[in-house]
């Protein structure tokens, strides 16, 4: 699903550079990326998402060389093929929960919003336990509930890949494990590979692979 070869990324100010010789994620596989702060976990995620473009190397996602696509195509590809879950969830507070879940369909001309999509959004919401909250606005919801909305939004397009950037950072410890399990289950449910960046080792159980980006050593999860 994801193939990164000989990546070099450097921010314009030059304060940070990231080199990744090789990184791969198979279809349907769940991968957790860990590592010390500042080692480039989030940057790698943004490179895979096509938000950032590497100075060297190539990134292929679902047989598309994302790193060589022009910006509009990268954006269209991301909206339709990649689901994003952010640290602060980044829900749009003036939209209802239902509209937040359907947001990719309002943004990308590569996606068509129809009754089947709406039904899928409702089914996803019900599956993660927020089926009754669809008309509500995110501000009236708890952090855990907001995160479920973000998970539904990431999965509603039936993406091949879900990228999650520290999705448990805003949650209390009791909710962290449950939320990651939910994200993994739902991603698996739509057949999507999952790449999750985290610094919380308590949530790593159940992942197919854990990659320590800091040492570029792949470790096996301790279940």
């Amino acid at each position: 699903m994801v193939h990164c070869d000989g990546l070099l990324f450097q921010y314009p100010a030059g304060e940070f550079s990231l080199r990744v010789a090789s990184f791969e994620v198979a279809e349907g596989q769940s991968v957790a990326i860990v590592g010390p702060s500042g080692c480039g976990k989030s940057t790698l995620l943004k490179l895979i998402a096509g938000i950032l473009v590497p100075a060297e190397g190539a990134i292929r996602v679902a047989d598309h060389t994302l790193s060589s696509l022009p910006l509009p195509q990268r954006q269209r590809f991301r909206a339709s093929r990649i689901g994003m879950v952010f640290q602060e969830f980044e829900l749009v507070d003036y939209l209802s929960v239902e509209d937040n879940i359907l947001l990719p369909y309002y943004l990308s001309d590569g996606l068509t919003l129809d009754d089947a999509v709406r039904e899928r959004a409702r089914t996803l919401a019900t599956a993660v336990g927020i089926g009754d909250f669809l008309p509500r606005h995110p501000r009236s919801m708890s952090q855990g509930e907001r995160q479920r909305v973000a998970i539904c939004r990431a999965l509603v397009t039936k993406p091949g890949l879900v990228l999650a950037d520290e999705p448990t950072a805003s949650l209390d410890p009791a909710n962290q494990t449950r939320s990651v399990a939910l994200l993994r289950e739902q991603s698996a449910g739509v057949g999507a590979a999952l790449v999750m960046v985290t610094h919380d080792h308590g949530t790593l159980a159940g992942f197919d692979r854990v990659v320590d980006l800091g040492s570029l050593v792949t470790i096996t999860p301790t279940v």
Partner: peptide, 16 residues
């Protein structure tokens, strides 16, 4: 700005 950045990250283009 943060909202717009998020929309971009999800897939919105600049013209949208």
């Amino acid at each position: 700005q943060r909202e717009f950045d998020s929309l971009k990250a999800i897939g919105a283009d600049a013209s949208s």
